[in-house]
Design a protein around this nucleic acid. Structure first.
Lengths: 260, 260
DNA sequence: TATTGTAAGTTTGTCGACAATCTGATTATC
DNA sequence: GATAATCAGATTGTCGACAAACTTACAATA
């Protein structure tokens, strides 16, 4: 009788979460992208990468396709894989999209039952505290991670699987924007008070104010990221990546994700 | 001098669009999904499908991963690939998302320069005419195709690559909703006047009205699709697919696309 | 009769190998 | 001296094959 307790409702076992190798590789690659071990413009050979991951090239190539569909990787012809370098246009696009999505998420959050709403606010509060601790330690990396998790919490409670997935990708792309524009993290002091204000607005049931604050934050981020538009990263890796033409692509049909 | 004319600006040749095999396969699969040759719940073996497409299993598996990331396919463990069957919850999610996105697109369209705006209206008008012709012929298939293209035009002029890509996927998913709920197309008479009204609202610069109309249309679509929630498609293919549990999945972390 | 155990068959998941292609540099020619 | 052509090297794209895992059917037992 001791030991395996808790299976009171016998028909309701939690399903076993078995994850495939491709999933593991994809997750590993995403981690590497967000933590900066694969900076934008990195061009890696498949054989080398597969060896590092301890898998064969087959599953790796499958995972690459997954990341490509998410827009985090580009696959230049016969040149392995490259982490996407975000252009100023990408920066604007990503942040504009987030500025459209996140206020909507806030609005949806406020329609949740009271218990759930308390739970969300608690989770958000936890992340803000993480941000505060990171700021005190001047740990830009930890600050950025907590920032991502804060917005991931927002996504996960939005009630839409698709939107959550999309915002999750957008957040990784946001991180790529930072890496594409600057060489490394920098501590961003305004971030914490801004997010405290976000939580306060939500706690006060003021979805309108939340939206305004979020939009202001994101616009400020765009300005900060695009402050010096020209001198940002002009090394050779970018030119290799530029094989994918960003400007002259014919605008007749950009309907579906196709390698890009 | 005859022959190859038109290269006046010599430095501005259109880049050669070379498409990889994986791209071709992925596009082919998407076509098959939208035209109904791969109905929701279809479980196909890799070898069989690869043979039909005339390729090896390698590239096919890579394309599968691409479609999986888009949410059109699910990959049950060791059971090949299955076209996603949309649940009522999916139907609501997809249409709610579209109801959030498309009004925003309309608003953005109205900020375009006059010339572009005329071009959009022209393209939209063309699609509406296609819808009208299809309706006169009682061709539900053609009507549905024109419907998709109408909204694709909307997406392509929205000024956001990411949003365009996302709406493109959402539209295919919309088609999957139809296939998941009904056995086949049905001619939908209200569709044409509704879309005429959309174009009129845009032509009148009334983004507000456009948004209201679009939301109304999408809500009506949800009601129509979920009219008979129980008797819709209860064959064995669905149960096979149900290996991916829709209800009892632990809701702790739904942050990133992982197979699902 | 229902349930469990066993076994065969089929299919996936993974790996290794081959060939086509691209890159980069070196050489020859105008 | 600069441009074009050639050649070697390396890497991707694709295919075939093997082993593990899962499914399904059948048989045995309680």
């Amino acid at each position: 009788m001791g030991g395996l307790e808790g299976n009171r409702k016998v028909g309701r076992l939690a399903p076993v979460r078995r994850t495939s190798t491709v999933d593991l590789i994809a997750e590993r690659l995403r981690e590497a992208v967000v933590d900066g071990s694969l900076p934008p413009g990195t061009v890696l050979g498949e054989a080398e990468l597969a060896y590092q991951l301890g898998v064969s090239r087959g599953p790796l190539r499958e995972a690459m396709q997954r990341l490509t569909a998410e827009g985090l990787l580009v696959i230049p012809r016969r040149r392995g894989l490259a982490v996407k370098t975000m252009t100023p246009e990408d920066v604007r696009d990503i942040h504009w999209l987030r500025a459209t999505i996140e206020p909507e998420l806030g609005r949806r959050l406020l329609t949740l039952p009271a218990a759930d709403r308390r739970a969300v606010l608690a989770e958000l509060g936890t992340e803000v505290k993480r941000m505060q601790r990171a700021l005190r330690r001047d740990d830009a990396r930890a600050l950025g991670d907590a920032y991502l998790d804060f917005h991931r919490v927002l996504a996960s409670w939005g009630g839409s699987v698709r939107l959550a997935r999309m915002l999750g990708t957008l957040l990784i792309e946001t991180r790529l924007c930072t890496f594409s524009m600057f060489e490394h993290f920098e501590v961003h002091r305004d971030l914490v008070p801004e997010h405290v204000a976000f939580v306060e607005a939500l706690a006060a049931d003021d979805g309108e104010r939340f939206g305004i604050l979020v939009r202001a934050h994101l616009e400020a981020e765009v300005r900060r990221l695009l402050a010096e538009p020209e001198d940002a990263k002009e090394d050779d890796t970018d030119r290799l990546l530029a094989e994918t033409p960003d400007e002259p692509q014919p605008l007749d049909r950009l309907d579906l994700p196709e390698g890009l």
